[in-house]
Amino acid sequence: MIKLQLPVGETQIRRLQVGDEVLLNGIMVTGRDAAHSWMIEEKPDEVRELLKNTMIYHCGPIVRKSGGTWSFVAAGPTTSIREEPYQGDIIGEYQVRGVIGKGGMGPKTLAALKKYGAVYLHAVGGAAALLAQAVVKVHDVIKLEEFGVPEAMWVIEVKDFPAIVTMDAHGNSLHKNIREQSTKIASRLIGIE
């Protein structure tokens, strides 16, 4: 287990390798489809400081508000590949050090991770209850009215949030490796090599 304190520097991120298990601590920001297209189309300055050297979490949470404060009830990762058209440019534009989601991403993002020094972290899909417990505080929320709860950008503080590096800054992708291996086995099983 590698502990990562956010914000995090480029050198530390470049040291990470595919297969590393990490625990994230500090402040990160959620974002899904609406947030990603907004960041590309309008290049909002209000999120620059926030995103610099931290992570974007692909997550549409279930939240609760009591006594004026928000808390996360369920907060697992959502499928990342939907952000493939935007992600690489966002990493460059906002100096993001990583994205967290599920399912991995494509070649454009992989190239951006290498170019700018960032990683793709895979959270455990469906483990919403436990991941929500790792969100110890909701600091702020951006675009709540316009985007709605799942799509808004939640600024959250996490403690020992677990994830695994599946795409690193050296051009490696665990997803690509596993797919190649399993496809070989599948072809052998059905005899169409």
Binding site: E21, C59, G60, P61, I62, V73, A74, A75, G76, T78, V124, G125, G126, A127, A128, A129, L130, L131, A132, Q133, P162, I164
Partner: peptide, 24 residues
């Protein structure tokens, strides 16, 4: 192994706290 362990722990936590296992 660690991922399966985490999923199980999540399931037991959800049951205990009566919160959704997954947000979807």
């Amino acid at each position: 192994k660690s991922v399966l362990g985490f999923m199980l722990k999540n399931a037991y936590t959800a049951r205990e706290n009566s919160t959704p296992i997954c947000q979807d």
